[in-house]
């Protein structure tokens, strides 16, 4: 009998244990699934009072620089393009997060669309996190070039990802759920390099 309860689970929930077991056998890399978050795609004119108005509702300022992120009260604001941000919240319900931000953005010609289920998140931690990602990601991941505070929409293997630097040894991968199985399979395969010698 299939579960009919409206519980929110990570699309890769069935792989959580496998990732934990693998991570225990790796040197300097840990792979982990992150809890689903409420998220909106915000489109807004970056000039003018719009971003400040949205910031009040979002719980923190929007990042002014391209390809950077800032912390919000309960989530992140990630700048995806000149007039596009991804705003996440671990506290709000998706429909409330969308409604509040849309209401704040609308007077300035902006719009917020619920994309909570449009991406899922994998956390890659450890001293070898960047070397692991560098086996499939072409952008310059040296900490000096991609320090904490940076984010980038790019490719990992053949999948589009939003890569976020939380620290030198701590990165987040936002990925489309349909690609998440591929991305995790890819990471698991690449991580074999980092297995502790048995």
């Amino acid at each position: 009998m299939a579960d009919t309860s409206m519980l929110v689970r990570h699309p890769l929930e069935t792989r959580r244990t496998l990732l934990a077991e693998l991570s225990a056998e790796l040197d300097g890399v840990a792979l982990e699934l992150e809890a689903p978050l409420a998220a909106v795609d915000l489109r807004l004119d970056p000039a003018g009072p719009g971003p400040a108005a949205v910031a009040e509702v979002a719980g923190g300022p929007l990042p002014p620089q391209p390809d950077t992120w800032t912390g919000l009260a309960a989530g992140q604001a990630l700048r995806l393009g000149p007039d596009e941000w991804l705003l996440t919240s671990a506290a709000a319900r998706p429909e409330d997060w969308e409604f509040g931000l849309d209401e704040a953005a609308a007077p300035f010609g902006g719009a917020a669309v619920d994309v909570s289920a449009q991406r899922t998140t994998v956390r890659v931690r450890g001293a070898s996190a960047r070397p692991l990602l560098a086996s499939g990601c072409a952008i310059d991941l040296r900490p000096a070039s991609f320090p904490r505070g940076r984010c980038a929409q790019t490719l990992l293997g053949q999948a589009g990802v939003l890569l976020v630097a939380l620290a030198d040894d701590d990165l987040q991968l936002f990925v489309r759920p349909s690609f998440a199985g591929y991305v995790v399979d890819w990471l698991v395969d690449a991580a074999q390099e980092f297995r502790r010698p048995s």
């Binding site: 069935t14 293997g157 399979d185 395969d189």
Partner: peptide, 19 residues
């Protein structure tokens, strides 16, 4: 490189693929 076998091309699945 890694792009062979199951990883040759991304396989996209829907949220109820396992069903």
């Amino acid at each position: 490189g890694r792009e062979r076998g199951d990883l040759f091309d991304p396989v996209r699945t829907t949220p109820i693929h396992d069903r």
